[in-house]
Amino acid sequence: MNKQKMAVIGLGHMGRHMIHRLLPQYTEKIELVAICDSDESSLHREVAEAGIRPRLYTDYRQLLDEVTLDLVYIAVPPSLHYDVARIAFEKGVHVFCEKPLANSLTEARSLVELAEKADVLHAVHFSLPLDPAVLKLRGLLEQQAIGRIQSMDLYLEFQQWPRAWQQNPWITSRQQGGYLLEVGIHWIQMIQQVFGPITHVKSEIEFPLDSNQSESRVQAVLRLHNDIEIRLSGTDQREGEERVSLVIHGEEGTLALENWCNLYRSNKDADLQPVSVDDVVSPLPILKQIIQILNGESGLIYDFHDGYNAQVVLEALRKPGEGFTDVRPQLMGDKTEGFIVTT
Rank of each mutant, 00 (worst) to 15 (best):
I171K: 13
R265P: 02
I146P: 03
V95G: 14
H249C: 00
L137H: 09
S214N: 11
M152A: 11
Q273P: 03
Q273D: 02
E241M: 06
N226W: 06
P208H: 10
I248N: 02
H81C: 06
L140P: 07
E251C: 01
G196C: 05
H17I: 06
L181T: 14
D303V: 09
H305I: 15
T254H: 02
E107I: 01
G177F: 08
N295H: 15
S104K: 10
E182A: 13
D326I: 04
E239F: 07
T68N: 13
R265K: 15
H13L: 14
G15P: 04
L284Q: 14
F195Y: 09
R109E: 04
S127Y: 14
P100C: 08
V134T: 14
L69F: 09
D227E: 10
L56T: 01
L181H: 13
A145Q: 08
L294G: 08
T68G: 12
E315I: 06
E215P: 03
N267F: 05
I30M: 09
D271H: 11
L137Q: 15
N267M: 11
M18L: 08
T58D: 00
L224N: 08
D227P: 00
P274D: 03
P77Y: 10
F96P: 03
W260S: 00
L272R: 10
E116I: 10
V275N: 12
C36V: 02
E206P: 00
Y308R: 12
R163K: 14
K335I: 11
A102E: 05
D83N: 14
Y302H: 14
R109T: 01
T325A: 05
M332W: 09
N267V: 02
D279K: 13
Y73F: 11
L56V: 01
L69R: 11
P329V: 03
R223C: 04
Y308F: 15
N2D: 11
Y264N: 02
R138Y: 07
V281Q: 14
I230Q: 07
I149C: 06
A48T: 09
H249V: 00
D70P: 06
Q176F: 11
G184S: 02
K268W: 02
H94K: 10
I230Y: 09
R86I: 03
Q193M: 13
Q143C: 07
A164F: 15
T27L: 09
M14F: 15
D39T: 05
S110P: 00
G296P: 08
E28N: 14
L232Y: 00
T235Q: 03
S127H: 15
I205T: 06
N212D: 09
D210P: 01
V247M: 07
A88K: 15
